[in-house]
Amino acid sequence: FYFFIRMYFTEEKLGQAEKTELDAQFENLMSRADCTKHWTEKIYRQTEVLLQPNPSARIEEFLFEKLDWKVPSRVTNAELLGQYMQDAAKEFDLGTPYGNTLEKVGECEKRLGEAEREFLQTSAISFLTPLRNFLEGDWRTISKERRLLENLRLDLDACKTRVKKAKVAEAKAATAPDFQETRPRNYVLSASASAAEHELRIAQTEFDRQAEVTRLLLEGISSTHVNHLRCLHEFVEAQAAYYKQCHLHMQELQKELGRLPNAFALNSTNAIATPSMVTEGSSSPVETDTLKIEEVQAPATGTRKARVLYDYDAADSSELSLLADELITVYTVPGMDSDWLIGEKGNHKGKVPVTYLELLS
């Protein structure tokens, strides 16, 4: 039987046999399903790469899942970096500016790593798992039913061909000159045609039933799209929450570093703030909070050039906004916080944070 089906399929390919065509709507449903499978697979694979760039780790996780073993919890790169920084801080002495800063930055990196791990877990559950369930569940069922439908279609086409051949043979026998003498043979041909028609009716019924089952499964692709749309929204929300959390952690770290004693800032201040820099007639040291920028004058000596490392937006009118890589003139005045300098560029001047500058010789 299967040999006959394969032979008939070959004849069909060569244009020597009739092929039962499916309606346009059914063909459209199959095309849409194939497109869904193709792009779901690509999105799934690339999301895996995004969440776990290490191919060896992906293979290991895949094997653990297939063997139904618990996937080991991995330390993220940020957590590992944070641990190294904190270990180094202990070696360098937490009492030094460098050691203290390493401790703070390491702690922040660990928090970033924890946020990343939470994001990976959330995305795997809310986005990756539904996509994989479709590919390994619904799509396999659809593929199985489509293969069965194709086999029934070939069977139906074979039955149609047998009926056609039986009717042609019967017609030829009826028009033969020796019709009366070949009457017994004609009865056999008629019975053969009737049997072929009976097989055709059965094959048509089975084909129609399978086509309806397959059609219902293909129409379910619309529900799949709705489900994947919801999962996509959850994935975006998880990403947004992760990046927001990282941003907050970095802002807190910057504030903490701004409050820490900075050896770089102290050295710079010592190099600039000397008694000879105090202008004549200057009074006792002024408090930073009451410093009037417009009244500050650059000292005759002690000014230095500095290159801006990062963009900085002034918090108020007493501060100076900065752009990365621009050169400005900086100096200090008595009573200023060691973490700040007075910066000038063109006709503008204001306080600038030392940590945003690279002082030039």
Results as ranks from 00 to 15, higher is better:
residue 1 F to G: 10
residue 1 F to Q: 09
residue 4 F to P: 00
residue 6 R to M: 09
residue 7 M to R: 11
residue 9 F to S: 12
residue 14 L to E: 04
residue 15 G to T: 01
residue 17 A to T: 03
residue 17 A to E: 01
residue 18 E to N: 11
residue 19 K to Y: 03
residue 21 E to A: 08
residue 22 L to Y: 06
residue 24 A to Y: 07
residue 25 Q to Y: 11
residue 29 L to D: 08
residue 30 M to L: 10
residue 33 A to D: 10
residue 38 H to E: 08
residue 39 W to P: 00
residue 42 K to Y: 02
residue 50 L to E: 10
residue 53 P to N: 04
residue 53 P to C: 01
residue 55 P to R: 10
residue 56 S to A: 15
residue 59 I to P: 02
residue 59 I to A: 14
residue 61 E to Q: 15
residue 65 E to M: 11
residue 66 K to R: 13
residue 68 D to E: 13
residue 68 D to C: 08
residue 69 W to Q: 13
residue 71 V to P: 09
residue 72 P to Q: 10
residue 74 R to I: 07
residue 79 E to S: 14
residue 92 F to T: 06
residue 92 F to G: 00
residue 109 E to W: 08
residue 111 R to W: 05
residue 112 L to S: 00
residue 112 L to I: 11
residue 117 R to M: 14
residue 120 L to F: 11
residue 121 Q to V: 12
residue 121 Q to K: 14
residue 123 S to C: 05
residue 123 S to T: 12
residue 124 A to M: 11
residue 125 I to A: 12
residue 127 F to G: 05
residue 127 F to Q: 06
residue 127 F to N: 04
residue 129 T to S: 12
residue 134 F to E: 06
residue 140 R to V: 15
residue 142 I to V: 15
residue 143 S to P: 07
residue 149 L to T: 15
residue 149 L to W: 14
residue 154 L to N: 11
residue 155 D to F: 09
residue 157 D to Y: 06
residue 167 K to M: 08
residue 167 K to N: 11
residue 167 K to W: 06
residue 168 V to W: 13
residue 168 V to T: 13
residue 168 V to K: 15
residue 168 V to A: 15
residue 168 V to M: 13
residue 171 A to H: 14
residue 171 A to T: 13
residue 174 A to Y: 14
residue 177 P to G: 06
residue 184 P to V: 01
residue 184 P to R: 07
residue 187 Y to C: 00
residue 190 S to F: 04
residue 195 A to K: 08
residue 196 A to Y: 04
residue 198 H to Y: 07
residue 199 E to V: 04
residue 199 E to G: 02
residue 201 R to K: 14
residue 203 A to P: 07
residue 204 Q to V: 06
residue 205 T to Y: 12
residue 209 R to H: 12
residue 209 R to C: 09
residue 214 T to A: 15
residue 218 L to H: 03
residue 219 E to F: 01
residue 224 T to A: 08
residue 227 N to F: 09
residue 228 H to G: 00
residue 229 L to C: 04
residue 231 C to P: 00
residue 231 C to F: 01
residue 236 V to G: 03
residue 238 A to K: 03
residue 238 A to I: 02
residue 246 C to A: 14
residue 246 C to K: 05
residue 246 C to I: 10
residue 248 L to I: 13
residue 251 Q to C: 12
residue 254 Q to I: 08
residue 258 G to K: 05
residue 261 P to E: 15
residue 267 N to D: 00
residue 267 N to I: 00
residue 269 T to A: 04
residue 269 T to H: 11
residue 272 I to T: 05
residue 274 T to E: 05
residue 274 T to N: 03
residue 277 M to C: 08
residue 278 V to L: 05
residue 278 V to R: 10
residue 280 E to C: 04
residue 284 S to Y: 14
residue 284 S to G: 10
residue 287 E to F: 09
residue 289 D to W: 07
residue 291 L to Y: 09
residue 292 K to M: 12
residue 296 V to S: 06
residue 298 A to R: 03
residue 299 P to Q: 01
residue 306 A to I: 02
residue 308 V to Q: 03
residue 317 S to D: 12
residue 318 S to K: 13
residue 319 E to C: 10
residue 320 L to P: 02
residue 321 S to L: 04
residue 322 L to Y: 05
residue 324 A to C: 07
residue 324 A to L: 02
residue 326 E to R: 06
residue 326 E to F: 05
residue 327 L to V: 11
residue 330 V to K: 01
residue 330 V to Y: 02
residue 334 P to T: 08
residue 336 M to F: 02
residue 338 S to H: 14
residue 342 I to S: 05
residue 347 N to L: 02
residue 347 N to A: 05
residue 348 H to G: 01
residue 352 V to C: 10
residue 353 P to E: 04
residue 358 E to C: 13
residue 360 L to D: 01
